Simulated scan of single mutants.
Amino acid sequence: MNWKIYLSGEIHTDWRDQIKKGCEMRDLPVSFCSAVTDHEASDAAGDGLGAESNSFWRDHKSAKVNSIRTKHLVHSCDIAVVRFGDKYKQWNAAFDAGMCAALGKPYITLHDESIIHPLKEVDGAAMAWAQSVDQVIEILAYVTSAD
C-alpha cells in the first residue's frame, strides 16, 4: 500500500522537504501532497473572479478557491502532518487539523513546546505530537511498515 500524506501548515521553512527526503532515504511507501505553499499565489487564488476594492472579499474569494484543493486533499489523504511554526499564527493549519478530526483522519502535529497551550485542543485530537521532523519520519516508518 502507498500511503498518501497531506502536509499542512507553516510555509516559511523547509520542513516539508526534510520529511520527503527522510522518507525517501528510508524507502517508505508514501506520497505527499500539500496546499499551495506560495503565499502570494494563495492570496491571489480568487483574483480571476474579479477585482475587489475590499480586502475581505478578495480574501474570501481566494479562501474558497483554495478550499477546493484543500478539501479534496484532506478527504483523500491517509495521514496528515500539521506543522505549526513559532513565527506566524497558522489558522489554516488549525482548520485543516479540525477537518481531519471531524473526518476521522489521523493526523500528527509538529511544533515545539512553546505553543503547547494554544494548541491543546488541536493536539488533543491528534494521534501524535512530534517536536522534530525526525520524529515524524519515525512515526511514518512505523505506521507504514508491512510487518
Rank of each mutant, 00 (worst) to 15 (best):
Q90F: 15
M25E: 11
A141I: 02
Y107V: 00
R58M: 06
V36C: 13
D112V: 05
W91S: 11
L119R: 00
I79V: 14
I108H: 04
D47K: 12
I116T: 03
A45N: 04
E24R: 09
V65K: 12
A44D: 07
S31Y: 05
E10Y: 11
R26A: 12
I115R: 02
C100H: 11
G98M: 10
D27E: 04
D123C: 05
S67E: 11
E121L: 11
N92C: 15
S114A: 09
A51Q: 15
L140E: 07
F95Q: 12
V81K: 09
A141C: 13
I139A: 03
D112N: 05
A94N: 12
S132Q: 09
S8Y: 00
L119G: 01
N54A: 15
G9E: 01
H39N: 09
E24M: 11
V30D: 07
I68N: 03
W15V: 14
L110Q: 00
A146M: 13
V30A: 09
S42D: 05
T144F: 00
V136D: 02
P29F: 10
G104E: 02
R26Q: 11
Y6A: 01
M25W: 04
G22S: 08
L7G: 05
D147N: 15
E24S: 11
A63E: 13
M25P: 01
Q90G: 08
I108G: 01
G104P: 02
D38Y: 11
F84T: 09
L73Y: 07
E10I: 00
H117N: 04
T13Q: 12
N54L: 15
D147I: 14
H111C: 03
D78C: 06
A63G: 13
